[in-house]
């Protein structure tokens, strides 16, 4: 499923990240395939607040649609 379909409180494992510079950036901050994320907040319009390894990161909806996760 897409990261964008997560709802508040849901946990998931990252399965696939988009390619390119954004992928390199995700690796730098520790958001790699296999990382466990939870959805802290979901705003109308799809902007999503993620929590993983004590970090809190906000992504816009279009970016969240390009990331595949599996629900835990």
């Amino acid at each position: 499923m897409q990261l964008a379909t997560m709802v508040k409180g849901m946990r998931g494992r990252i399965e696939r990240l988009p390619a390119g510079e954004i992928r390199s950036h995700f690796i730098r901050i520790g958001l790699v395939e296999g990382a466990i994320v939870s959805c802290m907040e979901k705003l109308p319009g799809g902007t999503i607040v993620l929590e993983f390894s004590r970090q809190e990161v906000a992504l816009s909806g279009d970016l969240a649609r390009s990331i595949e996760i599996s629900q835990l």
Partner: peptide, 8 residues
């Protein structure tokens, strides 16, 4: 529009 990816 560039996507928002921001550390909180």
């Amino acid at each position: 529009t560039s996507p928002l990816l921001i550390d909180l």
